[in-house]
Amino acid sequence: MSGGADNKAGIFSQAKRIVIVGAGAVGLEVARQLTERGETVRIVDDRETGVEKARAKGFFVERINLQDDEELKRVGIGGEADILFALLDEDASNVFLVISARAIAPALPIVSISGAHDTIERLHAAGATKVIDPYRISGYKIYERMHRPIIAETLEHTVFGKVNLDIAEIHVQKDSFLHGKYLDELFIEERYNLIVLGVVDREYGDQLVFATDPKRHRMDSGDILVVIGPEEAFIKFHRDLNADNK
């Protein structure tokens, strides 16, 4: 998770088309960061004041009626949108939006925020793929700052910070040198200066298994590795992967 990842979308995947609903403080901040990462962002809101404020700050915001399914379809929900963010200030509005969007697009990943703790379950029930609780995260960050200062400082300066240390996922392809190998015979830590945090081993399910797991994991196509490392290490690793493919 880093700021030094302006070109990450370019290296790792195609730019995604994202619809952000809600032009409040959260919506605009998310829009700003996603735009920085090179994603295609479309912001919509239904309140005149919110739209104008956002426009004054230099964001392009479309005003649509969020209760009208046709208008939701028009901005890409159920169509070309890859991800929907429901970032309205009111919990009830978010729940309503998530329900409408889920009805239109059953497979669309929907991320929402919750203001109160008990809304999280409701949003999940309404069909949200992921619910982020900004206040819980902030509260935990503050707590960590106070009582685990070394961890907080390290994370802030490395993974969350401006330096080029990233967490990324690597998808194992059929013809790459990873295919068929056991994790512990690859020596990724030493060869590439990348730390393997965990794997999604399809033999055991779709869950992420941490590398602390005592089982030996064999990499097959479709498996995913989650690794931490500096940008140049990723570039080298990808070069080797691609060289293999040819």
Binding site: M1, A5, V30, Q33, I113
Partner: peptide
């Protein structure tokens, strides 16, 4: 608080497993 949401949202868009 909102910056953290942005960071997490950005990560989710790019790499849901990570």
């Amino acid at each position: 608080p909102f910056k953290i949401v942005g960071l997490i949202a950005g990560e989710y868009v790019g790499q849901p497993v990570a």
